[in-house]
Nucleic acid binder design. Structure first.
Lengths: 169, 169
DNA sequence: TATTGTTATACTCTATAACTATA
DNA sequence: TATAGTTATAGAGTATAACAATA
């Protein structure tokens, strides 16, 4: 290993962090940790179904199937399947978009909203505990910088993705 | 929505960010973006196989199968399968650990190391570009805080996971 | 007897293709 | 003719169970 960090401008830090972030993400979404949180939700839900509920809760408003798919970075039919299951469990409702008869708006029922609420409360409790010793200033600063990172990176990656698209003239 | 952010101590920020981080992670590991980066690697690799190569490169030393599995947050047999494929492609080598005849040390060949190098260079290039306008101070600060977040959270989640373990006396 | 890894198998998650209805 | 969603099917990714070898 001779010239590892030639001329990176601070991203060497991210280079090590990125895999670990991914690892953290996996730890939260697989295995016993997920089981604990989903148990707190009080409703039998698998990962993708819960992901739909969380997506709806984060949005704070009813979403179309296509919107859910985009936010989850998955494809339409997958969302349809999950929504079918959630609807059967009485956790979401499907209403026809009054503005476009083709589209369906998906919204959580009170039961569904309560379930995702309990799930997220558990997960955020873990964060609270892990950051308990941090000075307020660092927490604020991390939130600010991380927010900007997500914004800038999302925009940039979306642009790359767009450029890469099979050119259709 | 009446009392959304009752008494969180700054984690309200993370509450919104967590799903978006997950979304970013997905964007990088699915769809066209991944295809672009893997193409830069110059070797036909699927996601889990590439994940093994990246894990080895981040570690900077040969790893045992179990170590790879832990870092990838997957289970042993899954790693064995990927290593089998990578070995067939001549991208990793398996050597018996001299200290323990049961264990195998997996190390990238020069070809494997070069492939993961090209892949990661592409991805980090995206980061470089996205953060190009950031003041040096913010980049440094983000690296510092994010590093601590990952450390503290990893430790805390590992502890929770351990506690939750089916008690075996 | 416990640990490291492998093989064989089953299951979960997500994508693609073909179709329906509305625009 | 294009868009939103659904249904049916196929594939990728990961886990569980049973086993072999070494400690």
């Amino acid at each position: 290993m001779t010239d590892q960090h030639k001329d990176d401008r601070g991203q060497g830090l991210l280079a090590e962090l990125l895999p670990r972030l991914s690892q953290l993400n996996n730890a939260l979404n697989r295995g016993r940790l997920f089981d604990q949180a989903v148990q707190a939700a009080g409703v039998p839900l698998d990962r993708p179904a819960l992901s739909v509920l969380v997506t709806l809760r984060v949005a704070g408003r009813p979403l179309r199937v296509g919107e859910i798919a985009e936010r989850m970075q998955v494809v339409g039919p997958h969302v349809t399947r999950q929504v079918n299951g959630l609807e059967r469990q009485g956790l979401v409702r499907r209403i026809t978009d009054p503005l476009d008869q083709r589209a369906r708006l998906v919204e959580p029922t009170p039961e569904g909203a309560a379930a995702s609420e309990r799930y997220m409360r558990t997960v955020f409790g873990w964060f609270d505990d892990a950051l308990a010793d941090w000075p307020e200033r660092d927490r604020k600063e991390l939130g600010r910088l991380l927010g900007r990172l997500v914004d800038d990176l999302s925009a940039h990656l979306a642009a790359i993705d767009e450029d890469d698209r099979p050119t259709r003239r």
